[in-house]
């Protein structure tokens, strides 16, 4: 049994070459793949842990926010409740004020209506009184009354300024002498007395107006001298209306 040293050396070289080749194409690539996967797994685990930590932090923040939201909700509800109470109070106060105002306005309106009605009543009463008085005075229309009215008319003419009296007596259209009735009037006496009072020769024309009730009045185109029950009653009615 001999050893071939050349063959031994060649086999040693062969095995060395095999070691080198397998190191290049097998052991290192596979070990590198394993190490890379381990690194990736470690990285994934690290990332997952970091993500979990981040999620835990965010969950804690969310829980804190949730607690804050609850407190804020309670605060908002309290504020809303207070605002609603204040609004209700204000609304009630406004409604009460409006109701008071409406009540006051209604009272005022009622008072005004009452006053208006009272005035109307007074007016109607005055008118009724005037009618009653006119009817009563119409019964008193006698010669004596007519004579009294004539005297008052003469007195009134005497109070007229001379210029106006001259213009009245010189009126070309004449002067209307208005009486309430022909029954109690003596035209000649009246004409004579008027001519005396007016002066000159005025043109007189007698007219009957039952509305006078009683009395004697002078009327021209630009002048009127009232002297009758009607004028007196109108004056009284005006005074009563003004007093009301």
């Amino acid at each position: 049994m001999t050893i071939d040293f050349w063959g031994m050396g060649l086999q040693a070289i062969n095995v060395l070459i095999l070691i080198w080749l397998l190191s290049r194409v097998f052991w290192r690539p596979v070990a590198a793949a394993i190490a890379k996967r381990q690194e990736e797994a470690a990285s994934l685990i690290e990332t997952a842990e970091a993500t979990q930590t981040k999620m835990d932090d965010e969950l804690e923040d969310v829980m804190q926010d949730r607690a804050g939201i609850g407190a804020e909700r309670s605060e908002i509800l309290d504020t809303a409740r207070k605002e609603a109470a204040a609004t209700t109070k204000n609304t009630l106060a406004e409604a009460r004020d409006k109701a008071d105002a409406m009540l006051a306005s209604a009272k005022t309106t009622i008072e005004q209506g009452r006053e208006t009605a009272q005035k109307e009543n007074e007016t109607q009463a005055a008118e009724l009184a005037m009618k009653i008085a006119a009817r009563l005075l119409g019964r008193l229309n006698s010669a004596a009354t007519q004579s009294a009215f004539l005297s008052q008319l003469i007195e009134a003419i005497a109070d007229i300024p001379p210029a106006d009296l001259t213009a009245l007596s010189d009126d070309p259209k004449g002067i209307e002498v208005v009486t309430a009735s022909d029954m109690t009037v003596d035209h000649k006496e009246i004409e004579k007395a008027l001519q005396t009072a007016l002066g000159g020769k005025p043109k007189l024309k007698f007219i009957m107006d039952p509305d006078l009730i009683g009395g004697l009045e002078l009327r021209s185109a630009h002048f009127a001298l009232h002297n009758s029950w009607q004028a007196d009653l109108k004056q009284i009615q005006k005074a009563v209306r003004d007093a009301a």
Partner: peptide
């Protein structure tokens, strides 16, 4: 010798197999 030739064949077999097996290593 036949041992040397067999060694070469084994080397080819191992290296070829290793090359074939490690062509596409993925994660």
């Amino acid at each position: 010798t036949q041992a040397i030739v067999t060694t070469w064949v084994i080397m080819l077999l191992l290296v070829g197999s290793a090359f074939f097996l490690t062509r596409q290593l993925t994660l």
